[in-house]
Design a protein around this nucleic acid. Structure first.
Lengths: 344, 344
DNA sequence: ATTAGCACTCGAATTGACTGAGTGCTAATA
DNA sequence: TATTAGCACTCAGTCAATTCGAGTGCTAAT
């Protein structure tokens, strides 16, 4: 069987009405509220076909139809094609500037959540490819040294280093010089084991203490295992009865809190080359790599702040989320992020 | 009417059983499962008295009794007095060391939540009274300077400062010296406006740029309006039907996410002098300063890491929470925090 | 002062009748 | 041949009536 023009019209009508109401939609509704003037009986026949083809289903015999994951998938894909539709009545998406990137991202998450009424997440960008701006070692007290590391985008990392023997000021000065002359301007991913061992050799004397310091610095640079994720609007899920069920809600909230799970969606996303249409990806139900999301849809998009600083934003809501609005909002946010970045 | 010995026994029996079951408890249950050998009829008479006195109530005519807030209050107060009871079967509360305090606190929140099965929060300590260890200004690029500020307890603050005119290395060096010689060793609360203006004068030349830098530094030091709070186990509230109701759950989750609300409980807590019994405070229902908590109980305690670094930990659960266990767990955590602190 | 006994109350669970939205199928129609 | 009208059927949801049982308060007996 083929998805002809009429079937498509009926299918999207079913999905759209379901998105609005959240109730199974019947043949009569469709026949009344669409321009194709067909009787409910005809619609029924077509719907039976669509069901057979797996796009819609009946929650129970003799009720209306609701979309299956396959149905949503079809709908979302078709949305993707009718590109660049303008969304009208949307609150303005405006990010304020802040000199700590983390503040901007927190804001972004909040904005997404409050604009869409779904839950939102924003991951801090990977800084693998960012270049090191400078490193500063300072003696804090007898047995500890503070390493401050700044990379492009003004992202700052602090690392306390404990040493057994105290280092004198002179050594620290030398170390600072050494680290900066050799590492500045390099992207973090280029700072590898080879380079580190080279540095250790160059350090010459004090190799034991010094090398432990260098190791610690290298460690701090490499420490992106704890990918930061900002979330907002988790409680929005209570707006949607199909998610507000206790067990599901608990799972979702938990996922939001743990972040480890969210990471999966973020990283999987970053792996692929961002060669898709508009960088937006939609996971419907069990398509998401996280089981707790099986009753949700997740819309993610990769943002890029130039020079490989790529992170992800995501919206999590019920399967019957307003995909158009969500995509529109995300796009607007992307623009804002771009602007913020360019203006620094 | 007086709360005689027997009434007290019956009251605590009612409360304890209710804590376990969450169901209204009847006279028969009490008469069977307590050592005081009285018939249900007698119990009933006593319970009628207790109800009149406001310690218990019937959710509806001819049902068992449940504790009122006043009842809980009585129970909790009596718990406080029978001090230092040892809690047996508890998972070990063990914090790992970490050199970033924030890591320790995150861990602490997680530990509390998983040990008690309630929601937990931990606020980062106030550092008002902490002494400044050192300040380091470094030039990041033409128009920005990074200020790194370290206070006792190895708490690190970073602040980006944008300048209109670039500062040369020499000036920065001088500024560093100036700031450090005048401020090091002072507790943050002692760094006030007078001191700042004094510094500005001493800076002499470049007053315009320099003073903006000093202002920024002062600002960073003072920036404790964004009190950090770590939370964990929000989804635990779904374990308790009386909170798992949609609206309530949404409110609670929201409060947890917003943190602004949680702050209230934390700061109110810190205001008072910590002169109470064991530093533990219990808010029952509407006693808490946050309306969203009206169906919960909140147990908070102030921890102190020496030298005035005081923060708060809190457990949030249903009114019928296991107060004994919670207090025990919190106490154990306190010990751990102490140990961690002392070993640094 | 305590207890046994009894009538009474009220929420929760169960049942059954009814409604209405929706379907599938068949026969009539354009 | 595609569409439609009509009809019998299904099933979730609602409402009222009924029953059940845990629990109470009161009174009289111990």
């Amino acid at each position: 069987m083929e998805l002809d023009e009429r079937k498509i019209k009926i299918l999207t009508a079913v999905i759209k009405t379901y998105l609005e109401t959240g109730e199974p939609v019947g043949s009569r509704t469709i026949s009344k509220y669409t321009d194709l003037s067909l009787s409910s009986a005809t619609i029924r026949n077509e719907m039976a076909d669509l069901e057979e083809m797996g796009y819609i289903l009946q929650p129970h015999t003799s009720s209306g139809r609701i979309p299956t994951d396959k149905g949503y998938r079809f709908y979302v894909d078709s949305l993707m094609e009718t590109k660049e539709r303008e969304i009208e009545d949307m609150k303005e998406v405006v990010l304020e500037k802040a000199d700590q990137l983390s503040e901007v991202l927190k804001q972004a998450a909040k904005l997404l959540a409050s604009n869409t009424n779904y839950a939102a997440m924003v991951s801090a960008p990977e800084i693998h490819r960012n270049k090191l701006k400078f490193i500063q070692l300072s003696k804090v007290d007898e047995s500890s040294i503070l390493a401050v590391i700044v990379v492009e985008g003004n992202i700052i990392k602090n690392k306390m280093i404990h040493t057994d023997a105290p280092l004198d000021d002179d050594t620290i000065l030398k170390l600072n010089l050494l680290l900066n002359t050799h590492l500045n301007g390099l992207s973090l991913e280029k700072i590898n084991l080879g380079l580190i061992t080279l540095l250790k050799e160059k350090a010459g004397i004090h190799t034991d203490v010094v090398s432990s310091v260098i190791d610690a610095v290298a460690d701090a640079i490499r420490a992106d295992e704890n990918l930061e994720i900002y979330t907002s609007g988790a409680n929005n899920i209570f707006r949607y009865p199909e998610l507000a069920d206790n067990e599901k809600a608990s799972d979702i909230i938990n996922t939001f809190e743990e972040k480890k799970q969210l990471e999966k969606m973020v990283t999987e996303r970053l792996m692929e080359d961002s060669s898709e249409k508009n960088g937006i990806q939609v996971y419907i139900g069990s398509e998401a790599p996280v089981p707790a999301m099986k009753d949700c849809s997740v819309v993610t998009a990769t943002y890029e702040l130039g020079e490989g600083m790529r992170g992800t934003v995501g919206i999590i809501g019920p399967k019957r989320m307003d995909y158009e609005k969500v995509m529109g909002t995300i796009k607007k946010l992307m623009d804002q992020l771009d602007m913020i970045y360019k203006s620094t």
